[in-house]
Amino acid sequence: MEVSRHWRLNQQRYALVGEVCPNCGVKLFPPRDVCLECEAPAKELYTFTGLGEVFSYTTIYDPPAGFEHNAPYMVALIKLEEGPMVTAQLTDVDFTDVQIGMPVEMVTRKLRTDGAEGMIVYGYKFRPLVGEEVTSG
C-alpha cells in the first residue's frame, strides 16, 4: 500500500474538505483547483457539512481486493446538500432500510487496512441521521 497516496488525501477523506469557487460560489468535491462551472481558479478550501441524501445505491457482495473484511456492504451515490455527488459506503444501516432520497450524514470510519501490520486507512462513509434512524429490536 502506498502510504503517501493515502496521506495526501487525509483532509478530504477524514472531513470532506473540498473547495469553493471565489468567482461563482460553486462548491467542489473532490478538490480540483478549477471551478467546474466557470473555469475560474478555485483553491479556497471548504469543509462540507457532511449532510446529503442517497441518490442511488447498490449492495456489494463480491468486493474488490482490500475490502473483503466488510462484505457484504452498501455503496451509494450521495448528493451532498451543497451540490456535489460523491460515491461512498453506507454504514450503520440495515440493507432493507435504504431508500433513494434517504437523508444521510458523513462519518469517518475505517475504510481498509493493509494486512495485520500495515497502516489503517480512514475515510468518509455515510449513515442515516442519528436520532432520526428507526431503531430495531
Binding site: N70, D92, L111, I120
Partner: peptide, 13 residues
C-alpha cells in the same frame, strides 16, 4: 463496535 469502527473513529464522532 461495528466492523469499520475503532477508538479513532469513535473519538472523532
Amino acid at each position: 463496535n461495528g466492523l469499520d469502527e475503532d477508538v479513532v473513529t469513535m473519538s472523532i464522532e
